[in-house]
Amino acid sequence: MGILVDVKKYLSLEEFPKNIQDYLSVAITDHAYLPKTEDITSDWVAYIAAPAFKLIREKAGHDLDAFASIGTGSGIDVLTGVELLGVKRVGFTDLLKSVVDTAAENIKKNLKNADSVKLEFGAGDLLRPLENSERRYDVIYENLPNVPLTDNIKIDDERNSGHYLEKREEVIPEFVHEQVLDLHYLALRQARDYLSEKGAVYSTLGGRVPLSALIRLGELAEFSSEIFTYSWKVQAEPEDVISGYAAQEKAGLGPFRFYRASDLQKAFASISVKESGKNAFEIEKSLESLKLTAAEAYKAFLQGEVIGHTVAVLKSSKK
Rank of each mutant, 00 (worst) to 15 (best):
L4F: 08
L4K: 14
K8F: 02
K9Y: 10
Y10N: 00
L11W: 02
F16S: 15
D22Y: 06
Y23H: 14
I28T: 05
I28F: 03
L34H: 12
E38C: 07
I40H: 01
V45F: 04
V45K: 02
A46V: 08
A46W: 04
A49N: 14
A50K: 11
L55I: 04
I56M: 12
E58V: 01
D63H: 13
A66F: 05
F67N: 00
S69E: 15
T72N: 02
G73E: 01
G75N: 03
G75W: 00
G75L: 00
I76Y: 04
V78D: 11
L79W: 10
G86S: 05
G86V: 03
V87H: 10
K88F: 05
V90R: 10
V90G: 14
K97F: 03
V99G: 02
T102H: 01
A103K: 12
A103I: 01
E105K: 04
E105P: 00
K108I: 07
K109W: 05
L111C: 13
A114N: 13
S116W: 00
L119P: 11
F121P: 02
F121A: 08
L127D: 06
L127C: 03
D138T: 12
V139L: 09
V139A: 13
I140Q: 09
I140Y: 10
L144T: 12
V147N: 03
P148H: 09
P148M: 04
T150W: 07
T150K: 14
R159N: 15
E166R: 12
K167Q: 13
R168K: 15
R168W: 02
E169Y: 06
V171T: 14
I172L: 07
E174W: 03
E174Q: 13
F175V: 13
F175Q: 08
E178P: 00
E178D: 14
D182R: 10
L183W: 03
L186W: 07
Q190V: 03
Q190T: 06
A191I: 05
R192L: 05
R192V: 06
R192K: 15
K198H: 14
V201L: 12
T204W: 01
R208S: 06
R208L: 03
P210M: 02
L211I: 09
L214F: 06
L217N: 13
L220P: 04
E222H: 15
F223D: 01
S224A: 11
E226Q: 13
T229G: 03
K233R: 15
P238Q: 04
P238E: 07
E239C: 03
V241Q: 04
V241R: 00
G244I: 07
Y245W: 09
Y245S: 01
E249G: 00
L253A: 10
G254K: 06
F256Q: 11
F258N: 11
R260L: 15
A261F: 14
A261Q: 14
A267V: 09
F268S: 01
S272E: 10
S272M: 05
F281G: 00
K285L: 08
L287T: 13
A297H: 11
Y298F: 12
Y298L: 06
H309G: 02
V313A: 08
K318L: 15
K319R: 15
